[in-house]
C-alpha cells in the first residue's frame, strides 16, 4: 500500500478519467432499477398502467 501511495502522483489522473464512467454507470444502474420497479408495479396493477 505504501508503494502504491508513494506513486499516487503518477496515477491519480487515471481516476479523473474513470470518474465520469463510474458516475454514469451509477446513474444508469439506478435508472434501470427504477424502471424495472415501475414495470413490476404496472404489471401488478394493470388499471393504473399508462395507456
Amino acid at each position: 500500500m505504501t508503494f502504491t501511495l508513494a506513486h499516487v502522483g503518477h496515477w491519480y489522473h487515471v481516476l479523473l478519467y474513470l470518474a465520469p464512467i463510474l458516475l454514469i454507470g451509477l446513474g444508469l444502474w439506478w435508472s434501470s432499477r427504477r424502471e424495472a420497479r415501475r414495470e413490476r408495479e404496472d404489471a401488478a396493477d394493470p388499471d393504473q398502467a399508462p395507456q
Binding site: Y17, L18, P20, I21, I24, G25, L28, S31, S32, E35
Partner: peptide, 15 residues
C-alpha cells in the same frame, strides 16, 4: 433501456 449498456461502454471508450 438496452442501450444503457452501450452508452456506458461508449463513455468508457471515449474516456
Amino acid at each position: 433501456r438496452s442501450q444503457y449498456w452501450m452508452l456506458l461502454v461508449m463513455v468508457a471508450f471515449t474516456c
